[in-house]
Design a protein around this nucleic acid. Sequence first.
DNA 1: GTCTATAGCAGGATAGAC
DNA 2: GTCTATCCTGCTATAGAC
Lengths: 192, 192
Amino acid sequence: MAAGAARQRILDTAIDLFYRQGYRATGINLVIAESGVAKATLYEHFPSKDDLLAACVREMARREIAEMRQAVVPKTTARERFFAPFGILQPWFEASQFRGCPFQNIVAECPPDDPRVREAARQHRENFRALLREVSFDLLQEHPNPRGLDPTELADLYLVLYEGAIAVSVAYRDAWPVRRAIQTLEVILEAD
Amino acid sequence: MAAGAARQRILDTAIDLFYRQGYRATGINLVIAESGVAKATLYEHFPSKDDLLAACVREMARREIAEMRQAVVPKTTARERFFAPFGILQPWFEASQFRGCPFQNIVAECPPDDPRVREAARQHRENFRALLREVSFDLLQEHPNPRGLDPTELADLYLVLYEGAIAVSVAYRDAWPVRRAIQTLEVILEAD
DNA sequence: GTCTATAGCAGGATAGAC
DNA sequence: GTCTATCCTGCTATAGAC
């Protein structure tokens, strides 16, 4: 096996299992079995299960912000870029069977809280918020809105609607909250 | 101890511990120690830890919808009733140290999912949605809004904003998302 | 690096004395 | 009903042979 490949396989497997089954419900032995590495190899890369979790959360954050930017950048108009983040929700819901936001789930399960997990989750949400500020700024510059909503306010409202859409979609196992969130943003933005 | 008192003590303790520490992270022995009952007594009332969890979720749903109605009913104007549900968030955040929605947290932790837990959570959310429809209906009757938003749409949007406000407040350990959600509803409702 | 064995511990659940 | 002792299982983590 190539150098570093074992580490990647472990991370991929753990991210998948921790998300689908939960962190505490997933035994380290299952991670070992599914990733096909030896127990000693895993403990060489990650001295403890908590260390593995921390590495997983960081890797998840790295991937998700990359995916988000990839969805936004190619779009041509400011309006398309603005609504692009919603585009990744539908396919993700279907693929994940509505398991919800991985970061929220992980944080919910770690109350004495390894600070590394909380910090990675916080960092990721800040990155997302920054991206929302960018698309909000661009959109408001092109189409100034009569209510005088500034980009920061719009981005924060966006974030609330986005996270709410995820949470309620999980509860109902249906994507109608996403459509409702998008519709709300449209109403807020429409000139009056 | 009075009949049924032991059961209540166990439920109170378990609800508290499961919420603060998580379900899997909380040992049954801790529930026993904290509630001050004997192990046999607990297993008499709740044959397994999963049974105890199911009972907890049902009890939590019962209490929360009661609290919600209690916040809504005394208000005099339709507008006050409409915004009343947000009133319980701030004190709750402070008391719970932003641990988030109990139902979401529990569901996130139970992936093979005891159907009882999912069902109780679903039921509770339906009850909340029904309450939101009531206050939305009343408000729109008093102040018809020019966009022709119907009560069901308004209630669904409300739900998305409400859950989003909780989720983001947890992430930031601050209640600004609640204010943002309220402000959004005000904008949506304002005549134009 | 892999495989196997095992230490060490905690949790869920049961049984028996009172 | 309470209290204590205990079984069993599964987990994290380590050690040793190869």
